[in-house]
Each structure stands twice: as structure tokens, then as C-alpha cells.
Amino acid sequence: MIEKVKNIVFQNRFWKSVFRHGMPVNARLRSEAVMSNLFLHIHPVKIYKDSLLFRKTLGLGLISFYLFFILCITGILLMFYYIPHVQRAYQDMKDLEFAVSFGMILRNMHRWGAHSMVALVFLHMCRVFYTAGYRHPREFNWGVGVILFVCTLALSLTGYLLPWDQLAFWAITIVVNLIETMPIIGDDLRYLVVGGTLVGQNALIRFYVMHVMVLPLLVTMLIAVHFWRIRKDGGLARPE
């Protein structure tokens, strides 16, 4: 009976198209499993055992990625209640805090997740730097990583405005005034970023679109490239 059910579940085309290998009991099947699984093939098929040790990497990159994943999920949930309008934005924050079930924990997960992502991405870069992971042949991936770090900061910054409280308003005012001090293009760039001369509705919607659409897409794409390069560059660097 059990055999029969097992057969029906596992011995069909659909199952086999998803899991293209058997139980990874030998080296071949193991490499197949890694090859055919998106989540595992971040590493090359063959890898030094040392590289997998936790203390070699402290898992910083992967944790950063998980945080990004959590931020995406909670961010999408928050978008259901958040309206990027100067008269509604702060009120929606208050709604999440006081009236929506589990609104506060979701918002806090998003917030603390974002803070820790910045920290962890930075620590990840430190780790790569100190283990000389930026050297040939990984210069390109280091570059991608730097861009990812900048994107993380940009995400934090754009998200900072969205609660539309005093803290947000003045922080962004300071930042755009910093932009203004850029030589030659400063004034125009500030005008473009704020969508006017004052931090107002235009700035809010611009930052919102950047925060929920443009930057996350960019980061997702770059993460894909980043992971792909890790694999192509032969996994983690080793002392020569």
C-alpha cells in the first residue's frame, strides 16, 4: 500500500522534472544535486572542504541575502497599508502601530532588518577584504559587491523618508542639501531628486518608487550576478 502511494508520488514525470536526481548518496549524485538546484549551485560542484566551514566566512553574505529576502516579504506586506501621501503617510504608520494586527512587528522587522542588513553587508565586505577575496579573478565580483553596498545604503535612505515624520523630513532635507553642494550638477540634481525645491509630496513619491520598485529590482539583478560570479570564480578564495 505505502509502496503504491510512494510510486504514485515519486515515480511520475512531474516529480522527476523537478528532482532530476536520486538521493545524493554518492559523489556523482551529490554533484548532480548541486548542479540542478538553484539554491545549492552557488558553490561550484567541487569545492574545498575548508571553504564550507562556518568560521571561514561567518555566513555574512548569506545572512545579508536572507535579510534582503525578509525585507522584500515584509515590505510587500507593509505596502498594503502604506499610502505615500503627505497627509496619509504618517497616519498609516500610526495605524500600523495601533490598529492593524501584527502591524507593529512587521514594521519593526522591516526596520531592524534594514538596519542590520547595512551592518552585515559592511561586515561581509570587511570579511572579503581581510581574506583578500577581491583579488584576481574576483575583481569584477568585488565591484558588483560595492555597487550592492551602495544600493543597500540607497534603499535605507529612501526608506527613511517614508514615515514622513520630523526625523525623516529633516534627514532628507540634509541629504538633499548635501547633494546640492556637488560641483556643477548639484543644483539640478537636487531639483531632480526632490522633484521641486522643497521636500514635499513629489519627493515622497519619488523616494517611494525608488524604494519599492527601482532599487529592489536592481539589487535582485545584481545579487543574481554576484552569486553567479561566485560560482564562476571557483567559490571562495583560498590562501595561495
Binding site: Q91, F98, A99
Partner: peptide, 10 residues
């Protein structure tokens, strides 16, 4: 006061 809040202090 803060009409949106539902706790005494807030």
C-alpha cells in the same frame, strides 16, 4: 492629543 493612538501614554 494623539487621536490615532490606543495606549494611554501615546
Amino acid at each position: 492629543g494623539q487621536g490615532l493612538a490606543t495606549s494611554v501614554e501615546d
